[in-house]
Design a binder for these strands. Sequence first.
DNA 1: CATAATTACATTGTACACAATCTAATTGAC
DNA 2: GTCAATTAGATTGTGTACAATGTAATTATG
Lengths: 171, 171
Amino acid sequence: MSRQTRLPVKSAAAKPSPLAAMPTGDWLLLDNQMCFALYSASLTMTKVYKPLLQKFGLTYPQYLVMLVLWEHDARSVSELGERLFLDSGTLTPLLKRLEALDFITRTRDAADERRVIVALTAAGRRLQKQSLTVPQHVSCATECSLPELKALTRQLGDLRAALLRSTSSTG
Amino acid sequence: MSRQTRLPVKSAAAKPSPLAAMPTGDWLLLDNQMCFALYSASLTMTKVYKPLLQKFGLTYPQYLVMLVLWEHDARSVSELGERLFLDSGTLTPLLKRLEALDFITRTRDAADERRVIVALTAAGRRLQKQSLTVPQHVSCATECSLPELKALTRQLGDLRAALLRSTSSTG
DNA sequence: CATAATTACATTGTACACAATCTAATTGAC
DNA sequence: GTCAATTAGATTGTGTACAATGTAATTATG
């Protein structure tokens, strides 16, 4: 067989990398890497939240759990995990801290003793109104307009979906 | 004085939040929040890297340190930190692991005994060529074109810069 | 040149994040 | 109904992140 053979090899002759249009020597440059921009922007973002959430005693991941519960109270741990893309190893200790703060309760589901139902306390519900200033402050800190924020949100959602496909499938 | 007074009040009458154009009740919805899209995309991204870097025994933050050193060998801990937006509390243990893997050396600077110079070993340099497949694979996983990747990289870099301004200054 | 201030890094403590594993409860196959 | 397979959470171990603090070396000031 010649070197030009293109039989459907294992993970496909498929698409060439989008990087093919760039010199190979530039592939490993930090500032060319979208992933590093993503990673460092995400870390910086949590630093912006920190002082805002500290007033309530919350961390950013804890605040995310509260957001989910404010949308729909009383959800199981796995439902929270699906919504937030986090697993029980992360959520279990986090939820125990939220419980210790008296913002949520954790109760075994009587109908299915494997499940743990996470529900808001009165204090947890009260927190919703008080935390309206948080997205307000953070959105200002982004120095983005609302259309820009919406566009970025969609792009990052699409990116997450694409990356999830590559982890769950053949890769 | 009339209600129109615009004396420079504490943290300014300043700009209204970009969210002002959105119903208040939507501010706390998870899927409206760019920050959650950012956070979850970043976590998903590191999951894509994991199997690719595991071949070399590296984690994603460790890989970032290698990227910096491949661009410019022999840098101090604080230089690495400035480049990666990480502090010594994160880098010190991470660098010790890279040293244990024999990819870097850590040496006190003779000219300034406070500084620790991080430099590549031969194995660390060899890793550069071997890791060219990593950005190739990840860029495919994003399902983005090169112009899309470049645009996202710039947007996220701008976002990080804006967020950094809000943490360092008056906030 | 003595000492106060600063700088560079390390350490400690808290909180994620997640793979791997474990346990208990439920469901399925027969 | 019994036992295997599955499911839901919890636990364990490793590795970030980062605030706060500690220590040693360097620089600045008088």
